[in-house]
Structures are given as structure tokens and as C-alpha cells.
Nucleic acid binder design. Structure first.
Lengths: 197, 197
DNA sequence: ATTGACTGAACGATCGTTCGCTCATATTCA
DNA sequence: TGAATATGAGCGAACGATCGTTCAGTCAAT
């Protein structure tokens, strides 16, 4: 890669990070291009050399999240026992969702996705990656006789992911923290949901 | 009530309903006061005779939701057996959340609440009413020996409410509907979560 | 005679985006 | 290799549109 292309990519990332910071603080629609430019230490006009428009910036952030999710899913070892894998998946994804960035952006993306199909597709794509990985763990557990054979794997996976994503948001709204007790309570619910009757 | 006060209140409701319709279509921050005024068949200036500002309009909608939630909670008969009451609560609240208005507004309020403390307080108030009612049902079930005594009533109640609220949103994003199968799957998860081991 | 619902033009601020411009770097050619 | 050319990152003023809000004025109900 040439030196020019390197600095361009670095700048691109700087802009994305500035945009994330702004969106977290103020939300998509309350953040202006001038806010992002100012935070990134760049002119307004230059934003448009790196991104077609504001929507492209939002999409780039969603794409960055896809990378993070794919890395996480790839790191969940498929060799472990299913019950241990389920625990590891929940703990790992909860750790991701507990980041302040995630808390706000998840809520922000969700509300945007409900109305904006383009964002909705990107959002749904991330969810599908997670859902499939978790459903595979559940399937493995059912085959091993660990989990309830009557379990609807896909629906259960989607429900568990929702539970994990919502815990930090809920805690944030109640003004509290997600301590070890709450994490363990969540894990208990998940285990109970998967366990055979 | 005088005739004047009557028409004023009717007008106030018309404005709120117009605002809801706009917010559902476009979201809080993409909806202008002119959009609301136009939809309500009223001048922009007149909006400010009924509501201090845009935030007051949003708050009024949240207050309307509080009424709906309180009515629902009051209607859940405390005489029923706890397991039947749990079913009824879930089905009833799911029916509320399945309304298109709820789907979008729930997501919209959640993302707004994360950042805006005033809205967050209103939002959290509605959640608390629901949480307490459901926690009471769980408590009754535990006392009757129907539910798991080790259950964290509050945390379980909050989790169940999240599950119910998220099912319609998730289905909407996936482009599908919430049929009887999905509703029943959700109910199964809830029962499993409450059941004693 | 007084009140207050109602109108719509107007205000200043801010929005996303464009555009003419400069300048450092990369590429091409003598 | 050195000079000429092409490229695109970067700037910031300016554009038209739209934002939430105000206000002087009208008119029907009290």
C-alpha cells in the first residue's frame, strides 16, 4: 500500500471514530456533519471525500460492528461442550454489549432500523450471524442430550440474544450497573431455557 | 366542563394523535412541528397553545402510554392462579406490543430514553409499573409452590417484559409476522423460566 | 368586555451538501 | 533521473432547505 493510501485509510478511521463518539453522545439525527468534522479535526468538505453522505457514515459504523461480531463468533471454540459453549457465548456477547458504545448504538440502530430499510438490513445481518452461531451451539447441545430436544433453536437463539442485548440497556435506564449478580441471573435464565425438562 | 374546554381537550387529543402518526412514520427528530400541524389540520402556532414545546408533546404521548399500561395492569385479575395469571399477562402485553404504533414507538422511546433523562424517567416509569405487576404474579406463584423459589422475581420480571417487547420488534426487522407459533414459543420460554427445577 | 383558541408570516439557527480552490503526493514522460 | 502532469485529500465559505419557536393580529365563545 502506498503512503498516500495509508494516510487516507487512517483518516477514514479517525472520521468513523469521531462519528461514533458524536452519535453516542447525541444520536444520529442530532449530530451534524460539522460536529463530526470538528471532533475529527477535519473540515466539513473533507468528510465528503471519504464518505458519500451521512448515511454512508452510519453504514460504515454498522460494517465495523459486523467485523467485531464476526471476530467474536469465530472465537467461540466449536470444540467445547455445548453447555460450556453456551455459557462462553453469553458471557462474551454480554461483555461486548456492556461497552458504553454498544449500549447507546444498539438502541440507536434498532430505532433507526425499524424505519430505514437500508440500516435495517445491515442491522439484521449482524443479528443473523449471532443467531446462527448460537443456534448451532443449541443444536449441538440437543444432539449431545444436554438441551431440550423440543427447543426451537432459532427462536431460542434470537430470544437469548435479545435478553443479552437488553440487560445493559435496561440497567442503564434504571441508573444501575450490571454487576456479577445480574450477569449470573441472566446466565441462569439462559441455562434454564435450554435445559431439558 | 364548558363547551369551550371540551373542544380544547378534543383538539389536544387530535394533535397528540397526529403527532403519534408522524413519529411512527418518521421518528421524533425527523418529524417537524409543521408535519404535526398539517396532519392535525391546525396551524403551527396553535400547537404552542396546547403544548409548551416539542418535548412536551413527546411527554404527553408517554403519559398516554402510562394510562394504557395502568389499565392493562389493573385488568390482570389478582384472583387467578399464578400460572394462569402469568400466561394472561404475557398474552395481554404481547397483544399491546404487537400494535404497529407500539413497535415503532417502543424502539423510538428506548433510543431517546438512553440519552434524554426526562424521557428516560417517563419510559422507566411505565416499565416499573409492568415489572411490579409481573413480579407480584411470580411471587404469588412461588408462594403457591408453582414457581421456582430460587427465582429472582424482579430480574425475571424485567427479563420477561423485555422478551415480550422485543419479539414484535425482532419480527418486524426480519420482515416476518408474529404468528401463533412464535407467540406460543415465547410463552413456552417464559413458563420454563418460571417453572421450578 | 374579556378570554383564549387560532392563524401564518417571520426569525435566527442549523441542517446536509456543494463548490472553487490549494497543495502535497503519485505517476508519466523526456 | 528530473521535470511535467494528474490525482485526490483537504479547506471553508456559501447554498437552499428546514428546523423549533415567536408574535401581532383575528375571531368566536364566555
Amino acid at each position: 500500500m502506498t503512503k498516500r493510501a495509508e494516510t487516507t485509510e487512517r483518516r477514514r478511521l479517525e472520521i468513523i471514530e469521531a462519528a461514533i463518539a458524536c452519535f453516542v453522545e447525541a444520536g444520529f439525527h442530532q449530530t451534524g456533519m460539522r460536529d463530526i468534522a470538528g471532533r475529527a479535526g477535519v473540515s466539513v468538505g473533507n468528510l465528503y471525500n471519504h464518505f458519500m453522505d451521512k448515511a454512508a457514515l452510519i453504514a460504515a459504523i454498522a460494517a465495523l460492528e459486523t467485523d467485531q461480531v464476526e471476530d467474536f463468533v469465530a472465537a467461540t471454540a466449536p470444540g467445547d461442550a455445548a453447555d460450556a459453549a453456551l455459557d462462553a457465548f453469553c458471557r462474551g456477547y454480554l461483555a461486548i454489549c456492556l461497552q458504553p458504545v454498544s449500549i447507546v448504538l444498539t438502541a440507536e440502530f434498532a430505532s433507526e432500523a425499524v424505519r430505514n430499510p437500508a440500516i435495517g438490513a445491515l442491522f439484521e445481518r449482524n443479528r443473523r450471524i449471532l443467531r446462527r452461531a448460537l443456534a448451532a451451539i443449541l443444536e449441538r447441545g440437543v444432539r449431545a442430550g444436554l438441551f431440550d430436544p423440543a427447543l426451537d433453536r432459532d427462536e431460542a437463539a434470537a430470544t437469548i440474544i435479545d435478553m443479552i442485548e437488553n440487560l445493559p440497556i435496561r440497567a442503564h435506564l434504571q441508573g444501575g450497573e450490571v454487576g456479577a449478580d445480574r450477569s449470573e441471573a441472566l446466565l441462569g435464565f439462559v441455562r434454564k431455557l435450554a435445559r431439558r425438562p
